[in-house]
Structures are given as C-alpha cells and as structure tokens.
Design a binder for these strands. Sequence first.
DNA 1: AAGGCGGGGGT
DNA 2: ACCCCAGCCTT
Length: 374
Amino acid sequence: MISMTRLRDDETARAIGRALLAWYVLHRRELPWRQSLDPYAVWVSEMMLQQTQVATVIPYFERWMQRFPDVATLAAAAESDVLHAWQGLGYYSRARNLQRAATRMVEHHDGRVPASINALRALPGIGPYSAGAIASIAYGQAEPLVDGNVNRVLSRLFALRGDPNRAPLKAAIWDYARALVSAAERAPGDFNQALMELGATVCTPRAPRCTSCPLAALCQAKKLDLVEQLPELPARAKATPVHMVAVVATRNACVLVGRLKADAPRWAGMWLFPNAEVKSGQTPEAAVRDVLFRTAGLRGSPSSIVCVVRHSVTRFRITLDAYRTLEPSGVARALSVAEIAWKSPMDLAALAMPAAHRIIAERVLSDSAGAGGS
DNA sequence: AAGGCGGGGGT
DNA sequence: ACCCCAGCCTT
C-alpha cells in the first residue's frame, strides 16, 4: 500500500486528483442540487442523501426547495409541514434536525449556512461527513469528507485492510482523504464529489466496473487482486422478524388515527394508526383489542384484514397486519398519544405518516372510493 | 423473501 | 470508542 508519508508530498496524490477530476467532468450526473452552489441547497441535499439514494431524493429535494426555499422559511415553518415534506424518506430525526439547525442559523449565523467546519459541526444533524461536504462543495474549502463510497474507493485504491468504520483504519482513511483533497486544492468540492460519484457508479460494492475506472492503473487492490475482498466490512446481524398489528377503526366513514407525543422514541409528532407488536402467545385479534383500548379507550374487535405491509427497518423485518374494526364503542380519547382524531380517508393525505402507515392509508382511501362508487 | 447499505448522536 | 438507529433498494 501507499503510505501516508509518501502520499502527502508525492506526485501520486496529484495524479489521482487529475485523473478523477478529468473523469468527473465527463461522467458527473446532472442533479438538481448541482445546478447551483447555494449552501442551503447543498446542505438540504446532503441531509436527504445521508441514508437515501439519489433517485429517491430528487423529487423530495425539488418539492422541499419549492416549499422551504431558504433558511428563514424553514426556520419559521410549522413542524407538521416539515414532517409532511419529509414523509416517506424515513429517519425523521433528520428533518427535525434540519429545522432545529435552521433556527440556530437564524439566531447565530445571520440566517446563513455557516462556512467553518467548527460552526457546522456544532449544528444538530451535521457530523464530520456533512461538515466536510458543505465546507468543500458549497464554500470551496479544501476539507476532506468520508462516507461509505469514500471508504470503499480508498480501501481499494490503497489496499487498506481492516474495518474502515473502526479505529485505527477510520482515522487513516480521513488522513488519506485530507491528503488527496489538499492536492486537488483548485477544486476541492468537485474532487470530493468525484470520489463519491466514482464509488456510486463505478467502484460499486459488488461487480465494480474496473475496466471503466479512471484510477485502475493506480489501484492497489486491483494490482493485488483484492477488489472483491475490500473493504473489509463486518457481516451484519440477521434481521429479527417482528409481527405487528395496526387498527383501522371506522366510524361514520372516518378512520381513527393518533399523533405521537413529542417525546416518542420514533415518529414523534407524526400520525399513525393505533399499532402494537403481537407478543408471543398473543393472538393478533387480542393485540388489536388491547391496543385500541390503550391508545384511544375504545372497545372493539377486528372484523377483516385491510392489508399486510412488509417492511424492513434497521435490524427488524416487520410484518404489519392492518385490521379493520367497525364501529368500536366508547368516546375516543388520546391516552397514549398526543392527539386522537377521526379523519375521512381523503383527509389522511394531509397528515405526516411513516411509510408503512401511508400504505395503509392509501389502501383505506382506495377501498372507500370503491365502496362509494358501487 | 432475503440481503446490503450508513452517517449522526448518545453513552 | 463503541452501539444503535423503526428504511429503501437490489438481487
């Protein structure tokens, strides 16, 4: 492998920069957030791209920029609007952090996205990666960044053994990234984007396209036939199956939904159908009755299945059975939620719901439209 | 249906 | 320096 001391003042770093930038000019994808270097747009796109792929992000980004075109608009927005705009992207703390950071920018940074790494790092939701991305892409500073793509590209390029997400290799990769971006000082933002673009489109996790790679001649993993072995990421734990039920309680052509409390561990402030895990030894029907009573104080039993939603989140593979419960008895009260409401299926569209519950809501709407039309 | 991917925050 | 996080896409 090429040592850091060699790389720092070596022609190798400049050769890598030249080859990568020449490739990037020809192969960069035209993406909405690349049309301007507005720091706000760069920041929003980076937050959206953190755990979500480019193709998914594009329509969200465009809607977001229409709805919240600048820091001040975002800071002043209602949280429910922010969550609604983020709905479907997942990991909703990203959206809440975005708005919290916007508020701080209004209070402490003259309503602008700060440029210094330290000021960026102090903002909620901005860690080492995002700070480097904003500083280099939006402000042209020679700051490094390391994400999953960079881990993979540099692990291969320099044939680095070990887990890139753990010390000591983690620190070494940041050092390599810093040395490389410093050697590409004329265009640090483009260099960093080129590194990630290469990882996303050529130096892919599986079946990398080495024959199309501008760095193939310099790649130590290719030379040593280690491309498929690197990076050395640990195997993930297997997903745990979880069985859950959701209740679609109906009354007067409306359905019952609850808004989670602000301190809920996840989906805080969002709207969900009453739901609970089916504990071992418990029947789904019992789980439905139980959660309907504990959430809203209503008594009722499931009559039919609305739909079954299968989705995976982190290390859980969830099967969510949605049960229709007709005319439950009692007056709905917000017991374990911040607010409980009967909504017409059409009105559900205005609420911020996580993806699995949005699927149920869409099904409820299409069922009700079918019933009304027949 | 199963497997793969990831940056930030909290401890 | 860990561990955890409640999604989506590809195979």
